[in-house]
Every structure is written in C-alpha cells, then in structure tokens.
Amino acid sequence: MSDDVRLPPQMRAVAPLDDAAASAIRARDEGDIRLMERIRDGDQDAVILLVERFQHELVGFFYHLCWDQLVAEELAHDVFVNVYRSRSRYQATAKVRTYLYRIAHNLWIDHLRRQRRHLSLDAELGEQSLRLVNTLKAPTTLDEDERGARNLVIRTRVQEALANLPEGQREVFVLANNHGMKYQDIATTLSIPEGTVKSRMHNAVRALRAELTDLIDA
C-alpha cells in the first residue's frame, strides 16, 4: 500500500484500500497540487473547490479538539481564507492536505492563546449556576429515550476523556485516529520530532484506555 494513502484505523477493517483506490487517491492529491497552483495565481474559484474538498475534514478536526460546532466552523473558514491570503508562500513540496492541517494547527494555537487571554473571564461553571431548573422540576426530554440517553452518556464520556488529554496529546491522537494521518505527517504538521509524536500518542492511548475501560470492555 502506498505511504501516502491512509484510512483511519477504525475504517480500515471495513474498507481496506486496494491498489485502484490508492492510485485514485494519489491522482486526487496531484489534483490538489494543481488546485494550489491556481490559488497561487489568484484564482478564487480554486479556493472554493478546495473548500468543497476539505471543509468537512477540517471542521471535524477542530470539532474534535473543542466540541464546539461554531468555533470549528469559524476556524475551518479561517483556514481557507488564510490559504488565499498567504498563497504566494505556498511551496509545492508539501502535500496539500498536510499544508492545510499545518495552517489549521497554527490557527488552533492562536485560538488557544486567545482563550488563555480571556481565562480570567471564562471561569465557567458548567451548568452549576442554573439551579432554577432544578427548583422548577428537571427537564425530562433526554431521559425519555433510554437509548438516546445512553448514547449521550457515551458521547459525553468520550468527549470528556479527549478534553482531559493535554493539548499536544489530543491533537496528535485526533490527527492519527480520526483523520488517518501517519506519524511523519503529524510531525510535519505540528513541527515536532516524530519521536515526540510517538510518545504523545502512547500517552494519549494509555490515558484514554484508562478512562474509558468500561466502554471498551462493553
């Protein structure tokens, strides 16, 4: 199998890539590079094609880091605008996908810095401050559907487990697991040595496994 072609682990078992699919994806990568060259020449329609191609992936990337749809949309939007703004700096040596994730990573770091600046304003208390609902009777909608409630519990547990990871580990794990990126690409994207990617991944797996043991065993 080609080094360039990857599926997230959980999808590989279901749909292993054959050579035809691999070459189709390689052709698409080459198409992406041509797209970037058009963008470098100032072609805005090419940016829109890039949006159509990568928007769901990038929104997913941000979403799995912050679990906030609006923030994810805004940051993904900014990735494409930044691609256009810095079009003159694009070198065709990097894979377009890695290039986009690199911009996405930088935007995420900026976002975190902004968040930290507002930290003193953001001592959020979750739902603790809304005790009136308890006074008035708790809402029942979620409890009515047992299965839905269980799914919600699982989702919340997974979200919390990911959110509890240190920032670097979370990003590495999301890129590897949810976006099928290899360690080498992750290292390029995050500008860190491949060994650091490995150790972050190991730590992330250990922490997640410990926190979600009951769900994994179920």
Partner: peptide
C-alpha cells in the same frame, strides 16, 4: 481493545 478504542472515539459525535 485498541480497535474498540479507535472505533469509540473515531465514530462518535461527528460535527
């Protein structure tokens, strides 16, 4: 076990 962990996190709550 690792596959289950991967599925659990990769398959949950897409945006």
């Amino acid at each position: 076990e690792l596959m289950r962990l991967s599925e659990l996190i990769g398959g949950i709550a897409p945006p």
